[in-house]
Design a protein around this nucleic acid. Structure first.
Lengths: 339, 339
DNA sequence: CGTTAAAATGTAACGGGTTTCATTTGGTCA
DNA sequence: TGACCAAATGAAACCCGTTACATTTTAACG
């Protein structure tokens, strides 16, 4: 592997001149610039960017802590991060953390050991240890999707409560009075917020909140299937099921259909996220569309601004959502109770 | 940010001693070791790993060129890469290339500029420029999933031809005589290999290959849906449809169902990949299971072996596949022709 | 107590760029 | 031709660990 000194040698100039010829060509005379370029080609010189990064103290790497890349929604967010990072000359170091705090802490150390400039966290958890937490300084981090309320860094999220409320209102407007909710992981703030939105809608419509209509889930296809099995077996079956994400909804939908129920005639199903598969279910899934790629882009963009000192306050960015009504939701079977 | 010299200063020892106390504790006396550790904690010293990497010339970074992280199958492969890399102290730099050769070339340069030690390519294309191609030396790369035949590096793949043949034979065994094939992108070797396997099975069963049963696709849900629309409109409708991946199959399945066709009574559908959604279709999708995570793990493992000089020949690893028969395939509607 | 080997520690080079500061070169104008 | 300024170039420091080699300390043994 050739280095700058070999080039300088071959061109008969100093290393400083070679460096300048490559970085600020206008600072060297055309004649020398030419000599240098010839030498560069001659020895096939490629600058060691590791040396540059070491010297400059900037790695232009960003660590992304993703609970699981196999989640379709996260995949879209990652894709957005990728695009925004590439645009500004940064790379994404992807970490599949499985939501494990110690794995996260390990990757977070990359920032403290100068292997990365900043970090993007997709989970509501601070991965840094105390040593980095300085009272009146922003963390080199952006928290996106599932966010913390009291964290000292920019945040990009969605008004999950409002979105869940909008979806629940949609179901209520269709005449549904008994609406089941299949929840996400207990620990996730998303679960809490979406549940709150669901309750908001019920309250606003004057419906009673019924604890027995809540079913546990964990955002996986299987958990949706499992919850649906329980719903089918329940005594007073709900006429609509709101799932806290699309995977859960798709898993539930399969279960209902295989049990001989028609959607939406017998039961309406709604999801959250609008992953690509949702438009290709039978029937297509009513859901909340989130700008997943924009989440990623916005997070990266904010993080780079922060790292480059372009922002000093931590903004809280709320992305827009959209209620996407498809064929999986329809009027309640028989308007049993009008009140 | 503190450095080793500050620690040395505070502990009243030389930098060499500090380095040794941290790297090979047994080489320093317990007394000094103690002094050093105290100083380390005092100043909150975290070694600059960028300096270490620069000095050692090893970055312990691997670039992964992925056509699109939003593809569920690739997401599983990435997950596997992640796991294997973390185990051996490497990081994955993820690149979403959209299958664009120039984007790939850009990322490949990271290897030549010492920002990464090696590269994993998921597409049948050599991303390196000529300058790195040395006649009798392996490229610092592993080609996985969709592979090149004549590439000078380890390869991890699946016998796509045999798998496609197995699936087609399964359909033939169910009495199907007119089997449509929805293909992948024209440019992909996968498309070619799977088509070849399809033909192999027809030939072996004494069935005539019919060009008009081939439908174009590009591995997306939409393309499966589009192809199914054409199939429904066709004159002599096939009784089975083999899709070159699961997304295509799921897209096609929706189209058939919305057209009022029953699966598998009216038409059988088969896919390829066994993504998580396939088990949660209605009916569940018959498909070829690929060990996606193992692809990623194996690729990373081979690449690291190669980089660390543990292998000098380029092995070709063929991973096993499994025919997963679910409810989306069944006997042909009416055994029209027995021969 | 003196000798000697082993253990502990220190000094300084090294890696490959960038950049500051000093020096040389070139050109302009009187 | 000489003075002077700008442009071009060079020398060397710097970033921060690791490590080869040199030196000092410690311990053991006669």
């Amino acid at each position: 592997m050739s280095n700058i000194r070999q080039v300088a040698n071959m061109a008969g100039v100093s290393v400083a001149t070679v460096s300048r010829a490559l970085q600020q060509p206008e600072r060297v005379s055309p004649k020398t610039r030419n000599k240098v370029m010839l030498a560069v080609n001659e020895v096939g010189y490629k600058p060691n960017l590791m040396a540059v990064k070491f010297r400059s103290g900037k790695t232009h790497n960003l660590v992304a802590l993703v609970p699981t890349v196999a989640n379709v929604f996260f995949a879209r967010v990652i894709s957005g991060m990728q695009i925004a990072a590439a645009e500004r000359g940064y790379s994404i170091l992807l970490a599949n953390t499985l939501g494990d705090a110690s794995i996260e802490a390990n990757y977070a150390k990359m920032v403290q050991t100068s292997q990365a400039d900043g970090l993007i966290q997709l989970r509501a958890h601070n991965p840094f240890d105390e040593s980095i937490n300085k009272p009146n300084e922003l963390l080199p981090m952006v928290n996106v999707c599932e966010v913390m309320h009291d964290i000292n860094c920019p945040v990009v999220t969605l008004d999950n409560r409002a979105a869940a409320k909008a979806m629940t209102m949609h179901l209520i407007a269709q005449g549904h009075r008994r609406i089941a909710l299949i929840k996400g992981p207990q620990s996730s703030p998303l679960t809490r917020d979406r549940l709150a939105g669901y309750r908001d809608a019920l309250t606003e419509a004057g419906l009673k909140f019924d604890e027995s209509l809540l079913y546990p889930g964990d955002f996986t296809l299987q958990s949706g299937h499992d919850a649906a099995t329980k719903i089918i077996a329940s005594e007073h079956r709900p006429t609509a099921v709101f799932c806290e994400n699309d995977e859960t909804a798709i898993g539930a939908m399969q279960c209902f259909k295989q049990a001989g129920l028609n959607i939406p005639q017998d039961v309406s199903i709604a999801g959250f996220d609008d992953i690509s598969f949702s438009a290709f279910c039978d029937p297509p899934l009513t859901t909340i569309a989130q700008p997943a790629e924009e989440f990623g882009q916005s997070a990266v963009s904010l993080l780079i601004d922060l790292l480059e000192g372009k922002i000093t306050k931590a903004p809280k960015v709320i992305m827009p959502f959209e209620l996407v009504v498809r064929a999986s939701t329809g009027p309640a079977p028989s308007a049993q109770t009008t009140s």
